[in-house]
Simulated assay, not measured.
Amino acid sequence: MNSELTMPTKLSFKSNKVMVNGDVMRAAIFARFMVAEVQTELTEKYYLIFYKNALIYGDQLDKVEKGSFIDKVLNEGIILDQKHPLLPVFIPVTALVIPAKNKLFNHLQRNYSLLEIPCIAASLDSFFPPEQLAKPIENIFFHYRRNGSFSNAYQSIHLLSGLSPSLEKISDLLHSREYSSYSRFYATSSISEIQKRTPYLQSSIAL
């Protein structure tokens, strides 16, 4: 094998106004998401989350919590280790900037649809407490419910609880009678039937 294919894949990004350089140890692709594990020269490990090829957020983690979204992706996604010839194809060559934590959700609201935000929020449970993630999802849920879009209201919470098991408590919002038909549909229908009715969920249900 050509030695160039086994050279470390480098990634540079700015975190809290500090430039960080590291080697990508592995990347995992899951539906529209990618998680990149980056190790710095000081052996610090950062986990960066991408959605549709755009960096969403990332930070240093001492360990990946079992049951988190990152854990799910690393165990169920398509893994590209550091020697995989396709890894450099998925890693940006230009330096990235991790959004400020206190401005992240405003950024998401400006750049993504209301149904995408719950999906993205589910991927951030390693970096934010559940209560902080639940708030914008509840706002979207009640927005759809006030406007009579019960299907979208259900989808917003269904996406969140399905993608991130550690946030399943928010599914309590779905236990009212008005969502019983949607609950039965998701519980009893095949994946192909769900995809026909809710095409947005297609990439989130299966790889």
Score class of each variant (00 low, 15 high):
residue 185 F to Q: 02
residue 183 S to H: 10
residue 91 I to M: 11
residue 30 F to R: 15
residue 178 E to S: 10
residue 169 K to S: 08
residue 195 Q to S: 11
residue 141 F to G: 00
residue 59 D to I: 01
residue 57 Y to G: 01
residue 57 Y to R: 04
residue 16 N to A: 00
residue 42 L to H: 13
residue 80 L to F: 15
residue 31 A to Y: 10
residue 41 E to Y: 09
residue 87 L to I: 00
residue 164 S to K: 11
residue 39 Q to L: 02
residue 186 Y to K: 05
residue 141 F to Y: 15
residue 115 L to S: 06
residue 109 Q to Y: 05
residue 83 K to F: 11
residue 159 L to V: 00
residue 61 L to W: 06
residue 100 A to H: 13
residue 2 N to A: 07
residue 63 K to N: 14
residue 128 F to H: 03
residue 207 L to W: 10
residue 138 E to S: 09
residue 34 M to G: 01
residue 147 N to M: 05
residue 175 H to N: 13
residue 58 G to K: 03
residue 55 L to E: 02
residue 114 L to V: 00
residue 186 Y to C: 00
residue 121 A to M: 14
residue 147 N to G: 14
residue 55 L to T: 03
residue 125 D to R: 00
residue 58 G to D: 01
residue 100 A to Q: 13
residue 103 K to Q: 13
residue 36 A to T: 10
residue 68 S to H: 10
residue 200 Y to F: 15
residue 93 V to R: 15
residue 78 I to R: 14
residue 134 A to Y: 02
residue 97 V to R: 14
residue 50 F to I: 06
residue 149 S to H: 15
residue 109 Q to W: 07
residue 162 G to W: 09
residue 3 S to H: 06
residue 73 V to T: 08
residue 144 Y to V: 06
residue 180 S to G: 09
residue 167 L to A: 00
residue 118 P to R: 06
residue 151 S to P: 08
residue 104 L to C: 10
residue 89 V to A: 07
residue 4 E to S: 13
residue 23 D to M: 02
residue 163 L to K: 15
residue 49 I to C: 06
residue 73 V to R: 11
residue 124 L to Q: 00
residue 123 S to M: 06
residue 11 L to Q: 13
residue 130 P to K: 01
residue 193 E to H: 03
